[in-house]
Protein backbone atom coordinates (compact mmCIF):
# COMPACT_ATOMS: atom_id res chain seq x y z
CA UNK A 1 0.00 0.00 0.00
CA UNK A 2 2.74 2.39 1.01
CA UNK A 3 4.72 1.51 -2.09
CA UNK A 4 1.70 2.07 -4.34
CA UNK A 5 1.26 5.57 -3.02
CA UNK A 6 4.91 6.39 -3.67
CA UNK A 7 4.69 4.99 -7.18
CA UNK A 8 1.60 7.08 -7.83
CA UNK A 9 3.24 10.26 -6.64
CA UNK A 10 6.38 9.60 -8.67
CA UNK A 11 4.40 8.88 -11.82
CA UNK A 12 2.48 12.13 -11.49
CA UNK A 13 5.71 14.03 -10.90
CA UNK A 14 7.26 12.40 -13.96
CA UNK A 15 4.30 13.22 -16.18
CA UNK A 16 4.17 16.83 -14.98
CA UNK A 17 7.86 17.26 -15.73
CA UNK A 18 7.35 15.88 -19.23
CA UNK A 19 4.55 18.29 -20.09
CA UNK A 20 6.52 21.54 -20.31
CA UNK A 21 8.43 22.50 -23.41
CA UNK A 22 5.92 22.01 -26.23
CA UNK A 23 4.77 24.97 -28.37
CA UNK A 24 2.69 27.14 -26.08
CA UNK A 25 0.48 28.56 -28.82
CA UNK A 26 -0.65 25.08 -29.88
CA UNK A 27 -1.26 24.09 -26.27
CA UNK A 28 -3.38 27.16 -25.61
CA UNK A 29 -5.39 26.68 -28.80
CA UNK A 30 -5.94 23.00 -28.06
CA UNK A 31 -6.99 23.80 -24.50
CA UNK A 32 -9.22 26.68 -25.62
CA UNK A 33 -8.23 28.59 -22.47
CA UNK A 34 -5.28 30.82 -21.59
CA UNK A 35 -3.78 30.11 -18.17
CA UNK A 36 -2.73 33.50 -16.87
CA UNK A 37 -0.87 34.03 -13.58
CA UNK A 38 -2.03 37.07 -11.57
CA UNK A 39 -1.71 38.29 -7.97
CA UNK A 40 -3.75 36.77 -5.20
CA UNK A 41 -5.63 40.06 -5.08
CA UNK A 42 -4.46 43.64 -5.51
CA UNK A 43 -7.34 46.01 -6.19
CA UNK A 44 -6.93 47.78 -9.53
CA UNK A 45 -4.29 45.39 -10.87
CA UNK A 46 -5.95 42.02 -10.44
CA UNK A 47 -8.73 41.17 -8.02
CA UNK A 48 -11.99 39.27 -8.30
CA UNK A 49 -15.11 41.43 -7.93
CA UNK A 50 -18.33 40.59 -6.06
CA UNK A 51 -19.39 38.21 -8.85
CA UNK A 52 -16.05 36.39 -8.85
CA UNK A 53 -15.00 38.05 -12.14
CA UNK A 54 -11.36 39.03 -12.27
CA UNK A 55 -10.80 42.71 -13.02
CA UNK A 56 -7.85 45.02 -13.20
CA UNK A 57 -4.98 46.40 -15.16
CA UNK A 58 -2.92 43.18 -15.30
CA UNK A 59 -6.08 41.18 -15.92
CA UNK A 60 -6.64 43.42 -18.96
CA UNK A 61 -3.36 42.20 -20.46
CA UNK A 62 -4.43 38.56 -19.95
CA UNK A 63 -7.79 39.22 -21.56
CA UNK A 64 -6.20 41.03 -24.53
CA UNK A 65 -3.86 38.08 -25.20
CA UNK A 66 -6.76 35.62 -24.87
CA UNK A 67 -8.83 37.70 -27.29
CA UNK A 68 -5.96 37.87 -29.79
CA UNK A 69 -5.19 34.15 -29.65
CA UNK A 70 -8.55 32.53 -28.95
CA UNK A 71 -10.97 35.24 -30.05
CA UNK A 72 -12.62 35.30 -26.65
CA UNK A 73 -11.49 37.68 -23.87
CA UNK A 74 -13.25 35.52 -21.27
CA UNK A 75 -11.36 32.34 -22.21
CA UNK A 76 -8.87 32.93 -19.42
CA UNK A 77 -8.19 30.76 -16.41
CA UNK A 78 -6.78 33.12 -13.77
CA UNK A 79 -4.22 31.45 -11.53
CA UNK A 80 -3.55 33.45 -8.35
CA UNK A 81 0.17 33.37 -7.50
CA UNK A 82 2.18 34.77 -4.61
CA UNK A 83 5.54 36.47 -4.93
CA UNK A 84 7.10 33.11 -4.14
CA UNK A 85 5.06 30.77 -6.32
CA UNK A 86 4.84 32.86 -9.48
CA UNK A 87 8.13 31.83 -11.14
CA UNK A 88 7.73 28.14 -10.39
CA UNK A 89 4.20 28.31 -11.81
CA UNK A 90 5.50 29.84 -15.02
CA UNK A 91 8.56 27.66 -15.52
CA UNK A 92 6.64 24.46 -14.76
CA UNK A 93 4.07 25.29 -17.45
CA UNK A 94 1.19 25.68 -15.03
CA UNK A 95 0.58 29.12 -16.55
CA UNK A 96 1.26 30.37 -20.08
CA UNK A 97 1.70 34.04 -19.23
CA UNK A 98 2.52 35.81 -15.98
CA UNK A 99 0.95 39.26 -15.66
CA UNK A 100 1.53 39.99 -12.01
CA UNK A 101 3.26 43.36 -11.56
CA UNK A 102 6.60 41.59 -11.81
CA UNK A 103 9.78 43.66 -11.96
CA UNK A 104 11.97 43.13 -15.00
CA UNK A 105 15.46 42.44 -13.70
CA UNK A 106 18.62 41.08 -15.25
CA UNK A 107 18.77 37.91 -13.21
CA UNK A 108 15.10 37.04 -13.72
CA UNK A 109 15.51 37.54 -17.45
CA UNK A 110 18.87 35.79 -17.85
CA UNK A 111 19.37 33.45 -14.92
CA UNK A 112 15.80 32.35 -14.23
CA UNK A 113 15.27 31.93 -18.01
CA UNK A 114 12.23 34.10 -18.51
CA UNK A 115 11.38 36.53 -21.26
CA UNK A 116 9.86 39.87 -20.32
CA UNK A 117 7.70 40.94 -23.23
CA UNK A 118 7.60 44.62 -22.34
CA UNK A 119 6.69 47.03 -19.57
CA UNK A 120 3.07 47.78 -18.81
CA UNK A 121 3.73 49.92 -15.74
CA UNK A 122 6.81 51.93 -14.80
CA UNK A 123 6.92 51.86 -11.03
CA UNK A 124 9.23 52.41 -8.08
CA UNK A 125 9.33 51.22 -4.48
CA UNK A 126 7.80 53.47 -1.86
CA UNK A 127 6.87 53.49 1.83
CA UNK A 128 3.49 53.94 3.49
CA UNK A 129 3.17 54.97 7.15
CA UNK A 130 0.28 55.97 9.38
CA UNK A 131 -0.07 59.76 9.53
CA UNK A 132 -0.06 59.58 13.33
CA UNK A 133 3.63 58.62 13.34
CA UNK A 134 4.48 62.09 12.07
CA UNK A 135 7.11 60.80 9.66
CA UNK A 136 7.62 62.87 6.53
CA UNK A 137 10.66 61.23 4.94
CA UNK A 138 11.97 57.69 4.53
CA UNK A 139 15.26 58.94 6.02
CA UNK A 140 13.49 59.14 9.41
CA UNK A 141 12.62 55.44 9.45
CA UNK A 142 15.65 54.21 11.41
CA UNK A 143 14.60 51.55 13.92
CA UNK A 144 11.23 50.93 12.33
CA UNK A 145 9.52 47.59 11.86
CA UNK A 146 8.80 47.10 8.16
CA UNK A 147 6.22 44.79 6.60
CA UNK A 148 7.44 43.41 3.32
CA UNK A 149 6.21 40.87 0.82
CA UNK A 150 8.72 38.07 0.74
CA UNK A 151 10.18 36.81 -2.53
CA UNK A 152 10.11 40.19 -4.22
CA UNK A 153 12.73 42.65 -5.44
CA UNK A 154 11.44 45.09 -2.81
CA UNK A 155 12.99 42.86 -0.14
CA UNK A 156 16.44 43.39 -1.68
CA UNK A 157 15.94 47.11 -2.35
CA UNK A 158 14.88 47.64 1.25
CA UNK A 159 18.03 45.97 2.61
CA UNK A 160 20.17 48.05 0.23
CA UNK A 161 18.41 51.33 1.05
CA UNK A 162 18.72 50.98 4.83
CA UNK A 163 22.33 49.83 4.58
CA UNK A 164 23.25 52.73 2.30
CA UNK A 165 21.70 55.22 4.71
CA UNK A 166 23.17 53.54 7.82
CA UNK A 167 19.78 52.86 9.33
CA UNK A 168 18.57 49.67 10.95
CA UNK A 169 15.13 48.12 10.76
CA UNK A 170 13.29 44.94 11.56
CA UNK A 171 11.76 43.13 8.58
CA UNK A 172 8.45 41.32 8.97
CA UNK A 173 8.24 38.94 6.01
CA UNK A 174 4.73 38.38 4.70
CA UNK A 175 3.28 36.17 1.96
CA UNK A 176 0.38 38.14 0.45
CA UNK A 177 -0.81 41.70 0.17
CA UNK A 178 -3.91 40.91 2.26
CA UNK A 179 -1.80 39.66 5.19
CA UNK A 180 0.44 42.71 4.93
CA UNK A 181 -2.59 44.95 5.10
CA UNK A 182 -3.86 43.21 8.23
CA UNK A 183 -0.48 43.37 9.99
CA UNK A 184 0.03 46.99 9.02
CA UNK A 185 -3.41 48.09 10.19
CA UNK A 186 -2.98 46.23 13.49
CA UNK A 187 0.22 48.18 14.08
CA UNK A 188 2.41 45.09 14.07
CA UNK A 189 4.63 47.02 11.66
CA UNK A 190 5.19 50.76 11.39
CA UNK A 191 5.82 50.82 7.67
CA UNK A 192 4.54 48.92 4.67
CA UNK A 193 6.78 48.94 1.64
CA UNK A 194 6.08 47.73 -1.88
CA UNK A 195 5.75 49.28 -5.35
CA UNK A 196 4.20 52.74 -5.15
CA UNK A 197 1.29 51.63 -7.32
CA UNK A 198 0.65 48.71 -4.98
CA UNK A 199 0.72 51.06 -1.98
CA UNK A 200 -1.87 53.31 -3.64
CA UNK A 201 -4.04 50.30 -4.45
CA UNK A 202 -3.73 48.92 -0.91
CA UNK A 203 -4.46 52.27 0.68
CA UNK A 204 -7.56 52.68 -1.48
CA UNK A 205 -8.96 49.53 0.14
CA UNK A 206 -8.53 50.93 3.69
CA UNK A 207 -11.47 52.16 5.72
CA UNK A 208 -9.81 55.55 6.24
CA UNK A 209 -7.26 56.01 3.44
CA UNK A 210 -6.64 59.58 4.65
CA UNK A 211 -4.98 58.34 7.86
CA UNK A 212 -2.03 56.95 5.91
CA UNK A 213 0.60 58.68 3.81
CA UNK A 214 2.89 57.42 1.08
CA UNK A 215 6.34 58.94 1.69
CA UNK A 216 7.87 60.98 -1.16
CA UNK A 217 10.98 58.80 -1.56
CA UNK A 218 10.96 56.31 -4.41
CA UNK A 219 13.97 54.09 -3.75
CA UNK A 220 14.14 51.94 -6.86
CA UNK A 221 13.22 51.45 -10.50
CA UNK A 222 10.51 48.84 -10.88
CA UNK A 223 9.54 48.30 -14.50
CA UNK A 224 6.60 45.92 -14.21
CA UNK A 225 5.67 43.77 -17.14
CA UNK A 226 4.20 40.50 -18.32
CA UNK A 227 6.58 37.60 -18.94
CA UNK A 228 6.72 34.18 -20.56
CA UNK A 229 9.13 31.24 -20.50
CA UNK A 230 12.43 31.39 -22.35
CA UNK A 231 12.73 29.25 -25.44
CA UNK A 232 9.32 29.70 -27.05
CA UNK A 233 9.94 32.82 -29.10
CA UNK A 234 6.73 32.55 -31.14
CA UNK A 235 4.63 32.71 -28.00
CA UNK A 236 6.79 35.52 -26.62
CA UNK A 237 6.22 37.48 -29.83
CA UNK A 238 2.46 37.14 -29.53
CA UNK A 239 2.46 38.43 -25.94
CA UNK A 240 4.93 41.23 -26.77
CA UNK A 241 3.03 42.52 -29.79
CA UNK A 242 -0.36 42.26 -28.12
CA UNK A 243 0.96 44.58 -25.41
CA UNK A 244 2.52 46.83 -28.07
CA UNK A 245 -0.77 46.87 -29.99
CA UNK A 246 -2.56 48.20 -26.89
CA UNK A 247 0.08 50.90 -26.44
CA UNK A 248 0.20 51.82 -30.14
CA UNK A 249 -3.61 51.88 -30.25
CA UNK A 250 -3.64 54.67 -27.68
CA UNK A 251 -0.97 56.56 -29.60
CA UNK A 252 -2.96 56.40 -32.86
CA UNK A 253 -6.32 56.97 -31.23
CA UNK A 254 -7.81 53.50 -31.71
CA UNK A 255 -10.23 52.84 -28.87
CA UNK A 256 -12.66 50.06 -28.05
CA UNK A 257 -15.41 52.40 -29.27
CA UNK A 258 -14.03 53.18 -32.71
CA UNK A 259 -11.95 50.06 -33.50
CA UNK A 260 -14.76 48.41 -35.49
CA UNK A 261 -15.29 51.59 -37.51
CA UNK A 262 -11.56 52.08 -38.15
CA UNK A 263 -11.26 48.45 -39.20
CA UNK A 264 -13.33 49.34 -42.26
CA UNK A 265 -10.19 51.09 -43.48
CA UNK A 266 -8.60 54.45 -42.73
CA UNK A 267 -6.09 56.62 -44.56
CA UNK A 268 -3.36 55.85 -42.00
CA UNK A 269 -1.37 52.82 -43.19
CA UNK A 270 -0.05 52.13 -39.66
CA UNK A 271 -3.59 51.90 -38.21
CA UNK A 272 -4.59 49.70 -41.13
CA UNK A 273 -1.67 47.38 -40.50
CA UNK A 274 -2.51 47.12 -36.79
CA UNK A 275 -6.17 46.40 -37.49
CA UNK A 276 -5.34 43.92 -40.23
CA UNK A 277 -6.83 45.63 -43.27
CA UNK A 278 -3.40 46.07 -44.77
CA UNK A 279 -0.41 43.72 -44.79
CA UNK A 280 -0.30 40.30 -43.12
CA UNK A 281 1.07 40.97 -39.64
CA UNK A 282 -1.40 38.56 -38.04
CA UNK A 283 -0.32 35.77 -40.34
CA UNK A 284 3.32 36.33 -39.41
CA UNK A 285 2.37 35.79 -35.75
CA UNK A 286 0.50 32.60 -36.60
CA UNK A 287 -2.83 34.31 -35.90
CA UNK A 288 -5.54 35.75 -38.13
CA UNK A 289 -5.69 39.32 -39.42
CA UNK A 290 -8.10 40.61 -36.73
CA UNK A 291 -5.94 39.67 -33.73
CA UNK A 292 -5.06 43.19 -32.65
CA UNK A 293 -8.58 44.49 -33.16
CA UNK A 294 -9.90 41.80 -30.86
CA UNK A 295 -7.23 42.59 -28.26
CA UNK A 296 -8.23 46.27 -28.30
CA UNK A 297 -11.94 45.46 -28.15
CA UNK A 298 -11.34 43.17 -25.14
CA UNK A 299 -10.82 45.99 -22.67
CA UNK A 300 -9.79 49.02 -24.66
CA UNK A 301 -6.37 50.40 -25.49
CA UNK A 302 -3.63 51.01 -22.92
CA UNK A 303 -5.03 54.39 -21.91
CA UNK A 304 -8.55 53.02 -21.50
CA UNK A 305 -7.31 50.13 -19.34
CA UNK A 306 -5.32 52.56 -17.21
CA UNK A 307 -8.19 55.01 -16.69
CA UNK A 308 -10.74 52.28 -15.99
CA UNK A 309 -8.67 50.36 -13.43
CA UNK A 310 -6.09 52.55 -11.74
CA UNK A 311 -6.49 56.04 -13.21
CA UNK A 312 -7.22 59.31 -11.44
CA UNK A 313 -10.98 58.78 -11.44
CA UNK A 314 -10.75 55.45 -9.62
CA UNK A 315 -10.27 55.02 -5.85
CA UNK A 316 -6.64 54.13 -6.53
CA UNK A 317 -6.10 57.45 -8.25
CA UNK A 318 -2.72 57.01 -9.97
CA UNK A 319 -1.66 59.70 -12.43
CA UNK A 320 -0.07 58.68 -15.71
CA UNK A 321 3.36 60.10 -14.79
CA UNK A 322 6.06 57.97 -16.42
CA UNK A 323 3.33 55.82 -17.94
CA UNK A 324 2.19 58.49 -20.39
CA UNK A 325 2.81 58.06 -24.11
CA UNK A 326 6.21 59.26 -25.32
CA UNK A 327 4.39 61.99 -27.21
CA UNK A 328 3.15 63.32 -23.84
CA UNK A 329 6.52 63.13 -22.11
CA UNK A 330 6.16 59.59 -20.73
CA UNK A 331 8.10 56.39 -21.37
CA UNK A 332 5.52 54.39 -23.33
CA UNK A 333 6.89 53.85 -26.80
CA UNK A 334 5.73 51.03 -29.01
CA UNK A 335 8.04 49.94 -31.84
CA UNK A 336 6.47 50.46 -35.25
CA UNK A 337 3.99 47.99 -36.71
CA UNK A 338 5.60 47.39 -40.06
Amino acid sequence: MKKTAIFGALTVAGLAAGAAGAATLDDVKARGVLNCGVTTGLVGFAAPDANGEWNGFDVGVCRAVAAAVLGDPTAVEFVPTTGKTRFTALSSGEIDLLARNTTWTFSRDVDLKFEFVGVNYYDGQGFMVPKALGVSSAKELSGATVCIQTGTTTELNLADYFRKNNMDYQPVPIETNAEAQQQYLAGACDVYTTDASGLAATRAAFENPGDHVVLPEIISKEPLGPLVRHGDNDWGDIARWTLNALIAAEEYGITSANAEEMAQGTDSPEINRILGTEGNLGEMLGLDADWAKRAILAGGNYGELFEKNIGENTPIGLSRGLNAQWTDGGLLYSPPFR
Partner: peptide, 19 residues
Protein backbone atom coordinates in the same frame (compact mmCIF):
# COMPACT_ATOMS: atom_id res chain seq x y z
CA UNK B 1 3.62 33.83 10.54
CA UNK B 2 6.84 35.10 8.99
CA UNK B 3 9.22 33.34 11.37
CA UNK B 4 12.48 32.89 9.50
CA UNK B 5 13.32 29.23 9.96
CA UNK B 6 15.37 27.29 7.43
CA UNK B 7 12.33 26.82 5.19
CA UNK B 8 11.89 30.60 5.26
CA UNK B 9 15.50 31.49 4.46
CA UNK B 10 16.96 28.68 2.35
CA UNK B 11 13.66 27.31 1.08
CA UNK B 12 11.99 30.71 0.84
CA UNK B 13 13.86 33.89 0.12
CA UNK B 14 17.12 32.32 -1.08
CA UNK B 15 15.25 29.92 -3.37
CA UNK B 16 13.21 32.79 -4.72
CA UNK B 17 15.96 35.30 -5.26
CA UNK B 18 18.38 32.84 -6.85
CA UNK B 19 15.79 30.66 -8.62
Amino acid sequence: VGYMDVTGTLGGITLNQTG
